[in-house]
Amino acid sequence: MAHKTQEQPEIYGVMAEFATPTDLVRAARRAREAGYRHVDAFSPYPIEELNEAIGIRRTRLPVLILFGGLLGTLTGYLLQYYTSAIDYPINVGGRPFNSWPAFVPITFELTVLFAAFSAVFGMLGRNGLPRPYHPVFNVPRFELASRDRFFLLIEATDPKFDREETAGFLAGLNAQEVSEVEP
């Protein structure tokens, strides 16, 4: 995204800093009301109210995790079934080849394992992480976003974006500081 927009606007977006979560949420709502759509907020801890304020849709990750889990169930059972009943059936203590009650624990464990992998890697993937470089880090005060400061970013790709006007809009929202984000 950063590369594509390189030639037109020479900045990534405009960022405003706020002192309190309340200010951030209020500013995010205003920005959305003003018609901005390519908006992102940054905070040192999760703020539930931001989801609706910047219009985050419900994530589809739970569905992915469900399928991951089901895949684990199938893998677990089929692994045991294939190895014990098809590939190398052998009389072990007079038990049936497909000793399904004995296969439950591993089936369960693999269900959880696969679901957990889907959850973590799904989250990282959907979040685009790991990401060694991101323009927002060019804002010097942005390192406070992981401590006590709250930031609102309006990206230059927003159709309504205008360098001066957007910066002015943000400054009017009780922002501590408004800065441009280098790409």
Partner: peptide, 11 residues
């Protein structure tokens, strides 16, 4: 046999 994890004792 049932408790051997590696099929080292079988019938």
């Amino acid at each position: 046999e049932v408790v051997c994890p590696v099929n080292a004792t079988v019938h």
